[in-house]
């Protein structure tokens, strides 16, 4: 994205460090601040290697431990950093196959990796993941001329394009015509995030975004007076959404058109809820007002507070 003026790159990086006994530390540039990377990222590596997630730990948030990273923002962690992790894991698999090929006395081109076992294609000759990783670090009988010891790989991944998730959101609300108060009754969000690694986490991301979007639409506002004094400068005046301001949400991500340009086929999901919900809410408010006969109201600026609704109804 340098051509657009970004002074920093928008790539990300990951190092997959396989230890002698087969456990793995994955150093990632993305840094979770609530997104659950420690759970979701190992799911990807575990899937690729056919080993259990409990053997894989994520290391993040420390420049002394991680090669480099651009961090977590813009719904990018899995699409960008996850892709770097996939690339690094692919390098691991390639090298591990070479080691396995050596141990099995077969060409690495014939080695298949499935469920944590390296097998010579078409035979029952196999060697376990742990035997290969041990050989990498305890290189007795090891072709040191062809293969370096150790099993650690780094990849930087710079996406060729953004990802383009999309969605359709609906809001049903009640508007009290006497006070102007709006109550969200139901909210439905159908999103296309491409492939999904951990559906539970993805749904949680949408929930949180929806509450922030509903907050923007109905509650939150930073107000300065004409002298530049910030009036809404504590939770006494800046209205944060609470549990009773929001309903249970219906969310769905079953319409999936996988992203074509990252290896996981994933699209960003972290911001979606906050993007689609404000217009859904405000459109519903205007719809409610029209259905109640207040057809003069074209628009109400956010936050659509009871006071603003009442004022709009006064004409």
């Amino acid at each position: 994205m340098g051509q657009l003026g970004a002074r920093a790159g928008l790539y990300d990086a990951a190092t997959v460090r396989v230890n002698a006994t087969g456990s793995i530390s994955v150093m990632v540039g993305a840094h979770s601040h609530g997104q659950g990377h420690e759970t979701a990222f190992p799911q990807v590596v575990a899937e690729m290697l056919g080993i259990d997630e409990s053997m894989i730990d994520i290391v993040h948030g420390d420049t002394s431990k991680i090669p480099f990273g651009m961090g977590t923002y813009g719904s990018r962690s899995l699409a960008v950093c996850g892709s770097a992790m996939v690339r690094a894991t692919e390098k691991i698999i390639n090298k591990a196959k070479k080691i396995a090929g050596h141990l099995l006395e077969a060409s690495d081109a014939d080695i298949e990796l499935k469920d944590g076992q390296f097998t010579v294609a078409g035979t029952d000759k196999s060697v376990a993941w742990g035997d290969v990783t041990l050989a990498a670090y305890v290189p007795h009988n090891y072709p040191l001329e062809d293969i370096e010891p150790g099993l650690e790989e780094t990849a930087f991944y710079d996406p060729a394009n953004f990802t383009y998730p999309s969605g359709a959101y609906a809001c049903e609300l009640e508007l009290d015509p006497e006070t102007g108060r709006v109550t969200i009754e139901r909210f439905a969000a159908a999103d296309d995030f491409g492939n999904v690694v951990n559906p539970m986490i993805v749904e949680g991301q949408v929930h949180g975004g929806l509450a922030q979007g509903i907050g923007q639409a109905l509650l939150e506002s930073c107000v300065y007076d004409e002298n530049g004094q910030l009036l809404s400068a504590s939770y006494m005046d800046y209205a944060m959404p609470r549990a009773e301001d929001v309903p249970f949400y219906q969310v769905d991500h079953s319409c999936a058109t996988p992203c074509t340009h990252n290896p996981l086929g994933v699209k960003g999901c972290g911001e979606a809820g906050a993007i689609g919900s404000p217009p859904a809410v405000v459109n519903a408010v205007i719809d409610a007002l029209h259905s109640g006969g207040y057809t003069q109201v074209d628009h109400i600026d956010m936050p659509v507070s009871p006071h603003r609704v009442w004022k709009a109804m006064q004409g």
Binding site: F162, T163, Y169, E172, A272, G276, N283, A284, S291
Partner: peptide, 11 residues
């Protein structure tokens, strides 16, 4: 009332 809205792509 409800007003479905389709969401633009985040990226």
């Amino acid at each position: 009332a409800r007003a479905p809205v389709s969401m633009t792509p985040p990226r």
